[in-house]
Design a binder for these strands. Sequence first.
DNA 1: GAATAGCGCTATTAAAAAGATAGCAAAACA
DNA 2: TGTTTTGCTATCTTTTTAATAGCGCTATTC
Lengths: 129, 129
Amino acid sequence: MTLSKSTKKVIQPGNAVRNSQSGQPIMVALDLLGRRWALRILWELRHGDTMTSRQLQKDCDISSPNVLTTRLRELREAKIVAKADGGGYLLTAEGKQLLQAIAPLAEWADRWASDVGREDLTCYSKSQK
Amino acid sequence: MTLSKSTKKVIQPGNAVRNSQSGQPIMVALDLLGRRWALRILWELRHGDTMTSRQLQKDCDISSPNVLTTRLRELREAKIVAKADGGGYLLTAEGKQLLQAIAPLAEWADRWASDVGREDLTCYSKSQK
DNA sequence: GAATAGCGCTATTAAAAAGATAGCAAAACA
DNA sequence: TGTTTTGCTATCTTTTTAATAGCGCTATTC
């Protein structure tokens, strides 16, 4: 490995990240997915189609392309997302598996919504705008 | 339910969040879990035991208690985490279900690690700066 | 073949979030 | 009563994200 200066680290299993020095896969994953828009980007790519960066930006409601670019780079380095031939982005095989792994989340979220909604939601609802 | 502070938004299904105005459960969940340390905190609570905030801070390697306090408050408001009688924090029933929903993530991470490790890492190390 | 439009991406500045230390009040313990 | 532990706040610095503008490139259209 040439890795001249490790000023910026690739978020990959085996590499130390903010969350952990160990490089444990799960810790690296939690770090990577815990960054802004990372989960959402995967979610918007869930259909498997190639999406342009602009489309992603629009669907995710991201105003600034900078964060999107950064996140996409990280996800590409992590082999979760790839550039498509002819432009755009799509999930890698690895990315599709990841998406399957977090698929139960949507189901949970629905249960969560109904459970939380069943409770004393009134003490929260009016604080919104 | 005096609602002392109406300026802060509770992250709950039904409420608009950064990611989405719709309040769709999955979007709210992605927003909440996409915040720094949120996933990791859940992960450290996965055994179901009551953990003190200091223990959590230590295990998560969080240097600043501020973020931890903020995240724990959000998770409590979302009914995912609760304060334990006699101090400390633990998962709610909802939180335990959430953890089950993202449990496949650990398994995926291990596969991911072996897959990524199998490939040519050199093509990434030099692109960094 | 100039004009147009969409693409990926960078530049810049402001705002927000997180990192890092220190320390306090209350409870638990001795 | 003195000591420890705990949850949390205060303060300040650093990092990350937000918000706009716009560049160079490619493809299409007139």
